[in-house]
Design a protein around this nucleic acid. Structure first.
Ligand SMILES: [Mn+2]
Ligand SMILES: [Mn+2]
Ligand SMILES: [Mn+2]
Ligand SMILES: [Mn+2]
Lengths: 227, 227
DNA sequence: AGATTGGTTTAGGCAAAACTAAACTTTTAA
DNA sequence: TTAAAAGTTTAGTTTTGCCTAAACCAATCT
């Protein structure tokens, strides 16, 4: 009475997909150098050189030794599809399961590797075909099109501007934790109180009058519109 | 402007988890021999011997060479937790995304390996804390308890009994396809028309009077209650 | 230009997870 | 109670994906 086994047709490994996603984030169209990719992936140089060779063999990237790596069209299509999954799952986790926006990234990092095109489209429909995720990031469409990228970095605004947060970068758990500490969320409104000419840090005044400083590395990941 | 990387703390590999799940299905408490495990996993003997050594090193199984492998308490706990995830995801895919019950197993095979205890419990709550999945299989509870196992195999009933399908075994895509062809689903009601004494195949009469035969390998995976 | 430095690639290892072929137990049959 | 058959383990390879150390290229500074 032994039972048959299932047929998981995984076309790409998780590692492969992570490299493709990292390349998309770092480069888009442009070539990315070994070091940047290594830092993003969290691996050492030689591991990356090797991984890039595997990706090149599958026509997902084009690489020129000592110069850089670039996604092919096939690679870009894969990248946007993974990103679509990541952001749909984040939306599901926040909207349906009730997670906080700061909790969902790491779980979506796993869910984005589940391979089932039918499920992705059923999930999208179930969520109401959203075009932005809980962090305000655009959700790539099935054809690869990218919806509008909301807002501009805080740096690009001037003192006394009234601002609304419309997007934050997926920049890891520590960043989100810090956002939560500062009570900053999508839709939060602030007045730009001052900008340090020394280290580009930014002082904001909240709706309740509270004043606080944001380091450059924090504010560069926060995108706002002027009201 | 390189971004930090995420911290996926995968405590078990996918392969490991598949072995644990297979052992649970084949043996439960009892020891399982190499060949049965190999057949279930879809690997050859030596791969299994090797894998079992890795599992034994992590105290997930106890193995006696040439005799068999058995799950430890830790291994059993892991198995039921994976099974819980599998069946909750199947329920989600059918109840929320609108998949057919024959389509969800392979996708759940992937989703069951996503590691986030918080998500599992939020998912369970979101689904209304179900105790049986779309195939009628019991969904293990957070403490490892197994809800009632519904029904008995068709073989155990007699001619002219009136029966209702309450469960089918997860027995692969081909089996589900065949169920669909025969228009058998959870809740379907039949009368047992006859049993072949030659090959144990069973003839059923549907509500509409249709008569059809089920091979032993089909009917042994279909569980019913007598009305 | 020549030398130093930083980034990249090559060389050589290691662990997981699969395989085949060969050796070795255990079971079954003569 | 041996001998054959069946099942399991060992030995040796392969691929993926990571590592360190050493060699190598390219940019920069004197
Ligand atoms: Mn994210
Ligand atoms: Mn996001
Ligand atoms: Mn299943
Ligand atoms: Mn099921």
């Amino acid at each position: 009475m032994p039972k048959p086994i299932s047929s998981q047709v995984k076309t790409h490994t998780e590692s492969e997909e992570n490299y493709i996603k990292a390349l998309y984030h770092l480069g888009g169209e442009k070539a990315v150098n070994n070091g940047a990719l290594a830092h993003r992936i969290g691996a050492k140089g030689p591991s990356v050189t090797q991984a890039v060779k595997r990706l090149a063999n599958k026509n997902l990237v084009e690489a020129i030794p000592y110069k850089g790596v670039k996604l092919t069209e096939k690679g870009t299509a894969l990248a946007t599809h993974i990103l679509r999954k990541h952001r749909l799952w984040e939306t599901f986790l926040v909207e349906k399961l009730g997670f906080g926006w700061e909790e969902v990234h790491d779980i979506a990092e796993q869910l984005e590797h589940v391979q089932s095109p039918e499920m992705v489209e059923k999930l999208a429909k179930y969520l109401g075909s959203p075009i932005h995720d809980p962090h305000g990031d655009p959700i790539p469409q099935p054809n690869g099109a990218i919806p509008p990228i909301l807002g501009k970095p805080l740096q690009q605004f001037a003192t006394s501007d009234t601002l609304r947060v419309v997007r934050v970068e997926d920049a890891g758990t520590d960043f989100f934790t810090q956002l939560q500490v500062l009570n900053i969320t999508l839709g939060s409104e602030f007045t730009l109180a001052s900008i340090s000419s020394f280290d580009s840090s930014i002082q904001l005044r909240g709706a309740d009058g509270t004043l606080f400083w944001l380091s450059h590395s924090m504010s560069s990941n926060i995108y706002v519109i002027s009201l």
